[in-house]
Design a protein around this nucleic acid. Structure first.
Lengths: 115, 115
DNA sequence: AAATAATGCATCAGTTTCTTATGTATAAAA
DNA sequence: TTTTATACATAAGAAACTGATGCATTATTT
């Protein structure tokens, strides 16, 4: 991850959500997808990404499958059943965070929002 | 801070924003205000709050003023000039974070949002 | 032809930011 | 009288990063 330190803790959410949409992705692909979606504003560093992927796998939320593509190794990650459940949970957590921040930053505002 | 680990990095933003609105607050008051605004969902712990306040003061964003109230010591914090500037900066950072998360979570969505 | 950038994985030291526990002290409430 | 609330503070440990480094292959640029 790069830029703002606000992002701490959202990397897992990003990974899980992308895998919910994409079925199967490898690490480098995730970094490129995030860069693309955020117009280069969020750059996931390898030092953050790979440990995060390993942790999610160790927790049983992701499974891996290694493929050879042009003499290069790719490690594809997919959601497990538990991982699929965790996506909703992480998204709800993110939404709650945003709502709470809005309550603090914009006191006296209608409850409406983004995710 | 308590609850979701998404919140990492947002404590400074919360403190600065509250002080922009309130002119002068002490630590305990901040914890209570946040609890009130978020209906108890965010509880700022002392172990997180005081070091954060000290750091902001050391960076020249806050100044302090000690008051005696009923034999109890209160340390009031206020924004410095630099602190006032930093509020906008932190809010912009928060908004950018939310926008980017929306782009990742809700691909193909109109650019509209919350702060 | 050679150097750089891109693709692709991984680890590691150090930093920041938190949690949880502990400590001190006064006042109010059970 | 014991617990809760008010009010400050520190400190060990955990978690999640950054930035550097390392290895290896392929594509592009000079």
């Amino acid at each position: 991850m790069s830029n703002s330190n606000l992002i701490k803790g959202s990397l897992q959410t990003i990974i899980l959500k992308l895998l919910e949409e994409n079925e199967k992705m490898y690490g480098y692909e995730i970094t490129q997808k995030v860069k693309e979606l955020t117009a280069g504003e969020i750059k996931i560093t390898e030092g953050a990404l790979y440990p995060a992927l390993h942790k999610l796998e160790a927790e049983g939320l992701l499974t891996t499958e290694i493929q050879q593509v042009d003499n290069r190794v790719r490690k594809y990650y997919s959601l497990t059943k538990d991982g699929q459940k965790e996506v909703s949970s992480k998204l709800a957590e993110l939404q709650a965070f945003v709502e709470n921040m809005q309550r603090i930053i914009n006191p006296g505002l209608k409850p409406e929002l983004g995710f």
